[in-house]
Design a protein around this nucleic acid. Structure first.
Length: 207
DNA sequence: GTTCTAGAAC
DNA sequence: GTTCTAGAAC
């Protein structure tokens, strides 16, 4: 008698491996994705001996880049005072890039409190948030609540305390906040409405 | 981080 | 009925 299969797969998947090899694929873990992006010439927009700047693969605004140190710093918690020069350099480079791509547009430069991707990265992001890759409440709140820490605030924290320690739980809760326009603070019921609403603001020039 | 989709919301 | 989101899978 043939073996019975009583469990329906919940989603379709390839399990047609007639070669008898294990089904586990040798893919890298998704949270290490920046390690390959950092060396991808397609994404790179600038580099020097200390820092690489790449385009975000899934930009959440018209202009969205990541500045990363060449030395491996896993996260904010790894930062020491000895990194202050590097962080200031990253911020300077970030501002140069923003200036280069659109000198009139407003940008922010900063870090997510609890980033998904390993390897310290500073976001360089224009404040229009006009992008098809901006889809979820988590996306929105990660750039428009205190979950987003300006580079200068991180630098000040490190100068003052010698380290950057953030309450992970507190910041993860912020991602669930109701949707609110970052310009006029209007409440919006869902993402499609929010995306439509923010088009009404003018981002073409700094005020 | 993204994709996919079940079930909530409308 | 369709739209939208949240959580699992990857």
């Amino acid at each position: 008698m043939a073996a019975t299969s009583n469990a329906k797969p919940k989603r379709k998947m390839k399990d047609d491996d007639s070669d008898g090899l294990p089904k586990k694929k040798p893919t890298q873990y998704w949270n290490q994705g920046l390690l390959s992006s950092i060396d991808d010439p397609e994404l790179r927009v600038d580099a020097d001996d200390k820092v690489v700047i790449i385009r975000d693969k899934y930009p959440k605004a018209k202009f969205h880049f990541l500045a990363m140190p060449k030395v491996n710093i896993p996260n904010l918690k790894s930062l020491k005072r000895e990194h202050l020069v590097l962080l200031k350099h990253m911020e300077t480079k970030g501002k140069e890039i923003a200036q280069r791509f659109d000198s009139r547009r407003q940008f922010r430069f900063g870090y997510h409190a609890v980033p998904s991707m390993s390897h310290l990265h500073m976001h360089i992001i224009s404040q229009d948030f006009d992008s098809p890759s901006l889809k979820t409440k988590k996306h929105w709140n990660s750039f428009t609540t205190e979950y987003f820490h300006d580079s200068e605030d991180i630098i000040n924290m490190l100068e003052k305390n010698g380290r950057v320690e953030l309450d992970t739980k507190k910041y993860q809760e912020l991602l669930k906040n109701p949707l609110k326009c970052h310009v006029c603070l209007k409440d919006l019921p869902n993402m499609p409405n929010l995306k439509q609403h923010i088009k009404s603001h003018d981002y073409s020039s700094k005020k």
